[in-house]
Design a protein around this nucleic acid. Sequence first.
DNA 1: TCTTCTGCCACATTTGAAGGGG
DNA 2: ACCCCTTCAAATGTGGCAGAAG
Length: 456
Amino acid sequence: MLSYLQPQLASESMLAICSTSSDESNKLTYPNEEDTNVHFNPVSTGIITTSSSARIPYSHPHHHHHHHHHRSPVSFVYGHAPTPTYGFGFGFYEDMSPFVDTTRSPYSFIHTTKRSDPNIDVKLENMDLWKRFAALNLEMIITKNGRRMFPTFKVSITGLDPTSKYIVYMDVVPVDNHRYKHHNSQWMITGAAEPHMPGRFYPHPDSNSTGAQLMKQPLSFSKLKLTNNTTDQNGHIVLNSMHKYIPRLHIIQAVSSSNNDTKLSMGPLDNVNIFIFPETQFIAVTAYQNEDVTRLKIDNNPFAKGFRENNGHANRKDVKSVKRHIDDEYDRRLKCNDIYGTPESSKRCKSSSGEEDQTPPSRVVPTSSTIDVPDSTTPFTDGYENQFHLHQNQLYDPNLYASPYSRFAPTYPFTYSTMASMGPTSSTNPFTLAAAAASRYSSPYTFSAPYYQHSN
DNA sequence: TCTTCTGCCACATTTGAAGGGG
DNA sequence: ACCCCTTCAAATGTGGCAGAAG
């Protein structure tokens, strides 16, 4: 492995990252049980953050003494998630009781695989909604052409270097090695999982931005799509139906190329930060299994308003009713038009980014975020091709990294065909490289080594 | 038989081009 | 010319449903 690396990158840190598929390396990357002095106790009164990711001090395997100042006063317990035998609980909890209601737990564990910059913190924006779904066992529809996630994965980031540029992207990885089925209103395991198709990474539209820009407003991954089409050519994330997954957020600090200020490149893999929110776990399905999940989606997803009770499908085949509905819509638009003069109403009537309307119908007043939150997707050109083109021209300097990683790329079967036609091959695509990098310290099947943060 | 998947549908939002006023 | 707002229509995002597929 070492011989594949360019000299300047064949650092000790690279060693640690590249070899983590083994148990030995896990001990290097994660604090092991000897490092902890607090045992996980679910009955404890300790309450930790539930809306924000916990801070995990990262200690370089070979430089512990250099990084002690990064350790937070919080103690951690390293727990190996037991293999769940039934239910849809969250890892460790299944040890104690099946079908855990995650919303009642005062704990939240962070399932992070790497956090190289301890200053970076990430908060899941719509945590309340995620938790309501998690309590029901969230299902995400996957389709041949790709389906968006709902709720939308939306985060706000703090602690970035304001002037440095970052690459921010998402992927979705298996939570366990099981295939599930829904039977008698319950999820249960039916067998072993199908192999996961790795390497599909979704770069955030604002990825080519400075830390200041990225921290300015929440980052929404609303346009990410999930598919079950293994031959997908659109760069969507490929999942297996009836399998359990969790999204991951990756933040990589970019490094300026020395001879060209406008080109940036992914830094050493040391700069990778990964964040996982257990509340965002879901089972991929081609059709909803639990009607409570369906109901909650309909009630909160603006695109599904047509299925809401009072204007919903009970009347869909009633022509008169449909016409009346259309007239109502016309009236509504007229009203909207009527009050366009006031700035406030103007904003409300303007198109919003959709996921902002996640308030249940019973809740009348939207939060101030409806008005204040900028649409982070504005500069998005809505095409992976353009994104990669952007990276090719402005962000990614192939000369800097093509060589060390090109040896890794062949281990990844997937290539962006659209990307290939743009110039760089999969071996020089920064996101393919990132995928290879990420997989080296976190194979989807070995990442069941969660941390449970426990307040002191 | 049973479970899972697909295509099409009605209803809704979003987008972006075109037009108008300042 | 420019910018901001409005309008409008096409594109796109939803879950239901029936039947196909396995």
